[in-house]
Amino acid sequence: MVQSVPSPAPQTSIRIIGFLCNWCSYGGADTAGVCRFKQPTDLRVVRIPCTGRVDPLFVAKPLIYGVDGVLVSGCHPKDCHYAVGNLYARRRLEVLKNFLSFMGIDKRRFDYAWVSASEGQRWQQVVSDFSERIHQLGPNPLAGKGIPQPVQGPLTRAT
């Protein structure tokens, strides 16, 4: 039976990108869906083969261009499908997290988590908490600065 719940979708439009490992967290999100756990709707999911594939720039670029939050989630350490991908990722992402605030980007806009394919409930928790945190932070102050403006100059054609 479909539960009737108030929509968790918030009023302000918030954009969150989630990079989810194919082998764990993507499955975990799927499990959460199959179990019909209530989830926030402002997460755009990008499926990745492994958190080891996550270049810290995948996180930095959206935050610089005004995305409101970025969440990376993969297999628990020592459970990586490729054995060690998430162990490399753990270091890189932790360094990145500590770095963002120095450049004036709130480090709370980024987080990473470990969620296995069977942990639907945990996924629900992680994503709800993260979404709530981003809503509290509000829109990214860098938003809008990167929208390419048409060049206005003497040769600009009137449209």
């Binding site: 720039l57 930095a60 670029k61 610089i64 261009y65 890189r92 990167g146 403006q149």
Partner: peptide, 25 residues
């Protein structure tokens, strides 16, 4: 294609993130 030829602040930020993060450690 990480960066374009456009001149705007985010591209400059991103360029410096590239340089810095590639030098991390």
């Amino acid at each position: 294609r990480w960066l374009t030829q456009r001149v705007n602040l985010p591209e400059k930020f991103l360029y410096h993130f590239i340089h810095a993060l590639h030098l991390a450690g």
